[in-house]
Design a protein around this nucleic acid. Sequence first.
DNA 1: GTCTATATTCCGATAGAC
DNA 2: GTCTATCGGAATATAGAC
Lengths: 186, 186
Amino acid sequence: MSITREKIIELGENLILSRGYNAFSYQDISTELGVKNAAIHYYFPSKENLGTSIVRTNIQRFEEMIDNMHSRGFDEWQQLDTFIKIYIKSHREKKLCLVGSLGSDFNTLNENTKKELIRMTEIILNWLTSTLTTGREKSIFKFNEEPQNKAILILSSLVATLQISRIIDNIDYKSICQSITDGLKP
Amino acid sequence: MSITREKIIELGENLILSRGYNAFSYQDISTELGVKNAAIHYYFPSKENLGTSIVRTNIQRFEEMIDNMHSRGFDEWQQLDTFIKIYIKSHREKKLCLVGSLGSDFNTLNENTKKELIRMTEIILNWLTSTLTTGREKSIFKFNEEPQNKAILILSSLVATLQISRIIDNIDYKSICQSITDGLKP
DNA sequence: GTCTATATTCCGATAGAC
DNA sequence: GTCTATCGGAATATAGAC
């Protein structure tokens, strides 16, 4: 795994999160790296390859985070807080998250990228649903909805508030996150 | 206001909601209308003009709906239900809403389109915040968050669940909407 | 193995035909 | 007033140079 390859994935991800999948080009990346746009095709023959690799990298990062939290013995509150902090960071950096950004572009993605995005979203929702379920069993959380529905509502709130924050710039993202967690307190 | 002009706005809106602003072209619209792509430029000289007109049309539609509900004497529950039904219809038609779709593309929009999108989002959020506030004063709704935060949370849930539904296709959108309204019951 | 020169296609947009 | 022929540029992608 070359350093250039990783750099391309990182630049590509940032471009997707700031401008969207269909609004960035290989030229955007190559200019940044000081090479011709065709050089990127050596590492990723088509945009589909790049998009798919970006999503796969994110899945790996997320799974490592989950493993890390489990091995550290984080309880459900600590896990949820850690997850929400990712979104607070994205908000600070004026970026969206892949679910929201690629979700909007879903119908224009290639099959492999779609497949990985589906997989990523399922992994996130399954983890969140499971965390909410066990957290409620332990009376750490309190809520009345189906855990699956609650998971979708929480993820949706985090995802779309990033998008709305981009439109209305004086939104207090942390305060919204506070409202989300307040709604889970026993 | 010619019939062709209205047809272009309608087709353009559907393309933004299904494929995104940067993924549709004048060709997509002209093919549908059986003319050359340049014919669309007669009605909308640039894509910016078209995008801005699409958002303006939506603002007008939303304001007419609000006026209509007020003159019919809808209470806060009836108003919220009517609003949510727009999203259930969008979900059925496999479309997003403009806030979510153009929110993702925000950084790539022209100044005028941005301005109208900001105006539209403010109008929606102001109406929702005001409806939640008076509804709570009348004890029709019950919630603990700041009305402004609650409005953003509800809109975000509706917006991003459309996007997530596109990725994960077996999501019960109506059930999610039920969870949203259940959370407001006294 | 890494990158460039180049091809091809499609985009938004203009000038001008009817 | 409405639409077409056509342009200039940017997109993705290939073939081949180093």
